[in-house]
Deep mutational scan, measured.
Amino acid sequence: DTFTFTLDGIEVRLHGASEELIKTIEELLKRDIRWEELEKWIREWEK
Results as ranks from 00 to 15, higher is better:
residue 13 R to I: 15
residue 47 K to V: 13
residue 8 D to W: 05
residue 32 D to E: 10
residue 31 R to H: 11
residue 41 W to S: 04
residue 20 E to F: 13
residue 45 W to E: 03
residue 40 K to Q: 11
residue 16 G to E: 05
residue 22 I to M: 06
residue 7 L to R: 02
residue 28 L to M: 14
residue 19 E to H: 11
residue 41 W to P: 01
residue 15 H to Y: 15
residue 46 E to K: 07
residue 26 E to R: 13
residue 34 R to Y: 04
residue 9 G to V: 04
residue 36 E to I: 13
residue 40 K to I: 11
residue 28 L to I: 07
residue 27 E to Y: 14
residue 18 S to L: 03
residue 13 R to P: 02
residue 26 E to Q: 14
residue 27 E to P: 02
residue 43 R to G: 07
residue 20 E to L: 12
residue 4 T to H: 07
residue 20 E to M: 12
residue 30 K to T: 11
residue 7 L to D: 01
residue 5 F to P: 01
residue 25 I to G: 00
residue 44 E to K: 06
residue 2 T to N: 07
residue 39 E to F: 15
residue 4 T to K: 04
residue 12 V to W: 06
residue 15 H to A: 07
residue 3 F to H: 02
residue 32 D to Q: 10
residue 29 L to K: 02
residue 29 L to H: 01
residue 24 T to V: 11
residue 24 T to L: 15
residue 17 A to Q: 02
residue 30 K to Q: 09
residue 43 R to K: 09
residue 20 E to W: 14
residue 37 E to T: 09
residue 14 L to D: 00
residue 38 L to V: 05
residue 37 E to R: 04
residue 20 E to P: 06
residue 18 S to G: 06
residue 10 I to S: 02
residue 17 A to Y: 06
residue 24 T to Q: 14
residue 37 E to L: 06
residue 24 T to D: 10
residue 10 I to Y: 10
residue 9 G to F: 04
residue 23 K to C: 05
residue 6 T to Y: 13
residue 19 E to S: 12
residue 20 E to K: 10
residue 15 H to L: 11
residue 9 G to C: 05
residue 37 E to F: 10
residue 32 D to Y: 08
residue 38 L to F: 15
residue 41 W to L: 12
residue 5 F to M: 02
residue 18 S to P: 08
residue 20 E to I: 10
residue 34 R to C: 04
residue 43 R to P: 03
residue 30 K to H: 07
residue 36 E to W: 13
residue 7 L to S: 03
residue 14 L to I: 15
residue 1 D to H: 15
residue 3 F to K: 01
residue 15 H to T: 14
residue 16 G to S: 06
residue 35 W to T: 03
residue 44 E to A: 11
residue 43 R to D: 04
residue 16 G to Q: 06
residue 15 H to N: 11
residue 34 R to L: 07
residue 23 K to N: 12
residue 42 I to S: 01
residue 46 E to F: 15
residue 20 E to N: 09
residue 30 K to N: 09
residue 40 K to F: 09
residue 18 S to A: 06
residue 36 E to N: 10
residue 35 W to H: 04
residue 31 R to M: 11
residue 37 E to K: 05
residue 8 D to P: 01
residue 12 V to S: 01
residue 36 E to A: 13
residue 28 L to W: 10
residue 47 K to F: 12
residue 35 W to K: 04
residue 14 L to T: 01
residue 29 L to M: 06
residue 39 E to I: 15
residue 35 W to Q: 02
residue 8 D to I: 02
residue 45 W to H: 07
residue 45 W to D: 02
residue 18 S to M: 02
residue 8 D to G: 06
residue 16 G to K: 06
residue 42 I to M: 09
residue 6 T to Q: 08
residue 5 F to C: 03
residue 3 F to Y: 15
residue 25 I to F: 03
residue 27 E to F: 12
